[in-house]
Design a protein around this nucleic acid. Structure first.
Lengths: 228, 228
DNA sequence: TAAAGATAAAAGTAATACTATTATATTTGT
DNA sequence: ACAAATATAATAGTATTACTTTTATCTTTA
């Protein structure tokens, strides 16, 4: 699988960037070090000036790739969802049992991310942390409707739709398939956040993972017994 | 109830403000108009200078009440959860049937807020919109652990705990009571957000409210039939 | 009615979030 | 191999933000 992924490029809506960061060494350094720096100091404190210093390049050169730091965050989260979507599709594709397929999907989208060496300039473990801590800020803005129209969030929406379809395959009569699908993704991120910062607000831990909580929730809701 | 509430003050952790905004006319104007202005232009664009212009007061006077706009947001969301907690406790207190009590609680925390004239300087309808659109930003920061230690989020945590207790009353053996409780609150806000901006990612609408989705989810998960 | 406390006005500072210009590399097409 | 095209770096500049400080004035209240 790693060999296979090596040649796959995550396709991101071109409106999100001014110049494709995958198209040059500088672009890749921008992506690589923005992940490290945002993880380190948080999105609020992150600036293109600091990133420029870090990669020994100039602030203005970064502006040639991304209009502002908000678009960079949209890019990074899109990349993450695209990467996760690939794993989801690849892993569940061959599973014919519908219940088992949905169970696997829940596991994939909610598990703690482990190193993936397929993309040398992206640290997926840190990117997952960024998605947990910062990604809400990419859509909780006054510009969300306009950016949604421009297709900034297509990959995320496709992820929700894939989960929704799997839910429908398991329980065609369930009324809230898309709400449940969006709740799986959102709650997964939230439970991971609570594990790190508000442990009294969650029962999840290394043993009882967010994935197990969500599998239990989903299959009871869909009236299917499943012993994952 | 309105008469009763009139005399109740929502108690907010004193570390969140420099001077209690409830203690003066200017303080109340700050709260009142910050809600209107944040709703209007969003938290990112909101500044104390703009608020000062709006209330015909000075930027530096606002700084006497709140250290920065982040603390003001923490204050507003705390106020909201305190207000909602009061409604929750008041409304569910007299219900002896445990299932019915939990059902009512879910309804209270997930319903669309309607006007409440008890607090003249707070527009609860707009504050609810702010909580949906901006409140995540109050804890998705690098300072969250330190602020949590200082008690900035106690009211929210108490809300989750109240829901958790109600869940335990209904199903003592359910393993994920606090995860489910935190999911109810988080998912409720998220489903309202999706209704407004990503209608394809939710089945919720005026008829099939987030409250109905969540009640269905919770009672199936807890193996209780309830026809709300 | 004097003193204390609150608010307003003005000015200043460092940093942010950019834009514009020009110079210097680097790549590529012939 | 070399000119042209393109990318990057360096520098400077602007408007705004997020404050702090100082001083003046206004309002309570003891």
């Amino acid at each position: 699988m790693e060999q296979l992924l090596q040649s796959i490029k995550i396709a991101i809506n071109e409106k999100i960037f001014l110049k494709d960061p995958e198209s040059s060494a500088l672009g890749k350094r921008i992506v690589e070090h923005s992940i490290l720096l945002i993880d380190e100091i948080g999105f609020e404190s992150f600036t293109f000036k600091k990133l420029g210093d870090r990669i020994e390049s100039n602030e203005s050169s970064i502006y040639r790739y991304f209009e502002n730091k908000h678009k960079l965050l949209v890019y990074l989260t899109s990349w993450y969802w695209g990467w996760l979507e690939y794993q989801l599709v690849f892993t569940t594709n061959s599973i014919s049992n519908k219940t088992e397929k949905l169970a696997k999907a829940i596991e994939i989208v909610s598990r703690t991310v482990e190193e993936d060496n397929a993309y040398s300039h992206v640290n997926e473990v840190l990117l997952n942390k960024i998605v947990i801590n910062e990604s809400s800020k990419s859509f909780l803005t006054k510009e969300v409707d306009q950016e949604n129209k421009s297709g900034y969030f297509v990959i995320y929406k496709r992820m929700v739709n894939r989960l929704e379809q799997m839910i429908k395959e398991v329980s065609p009569d369930y009324r809230y398939s898309s709400s449940l699908a969006s709740t799986i993704l959102e709650s997964s991120l939230h439970q991971h956040f609570l594990m790190d910062h508000f442990p009294t607000l969650t029962n999840c831990n290394k043993k009882h993972t967010p994935g197990k909580f969500l599998a239990d929730l989903v299959f009871k809701t869909l009236n299917k017994t499943y012993n994952g």
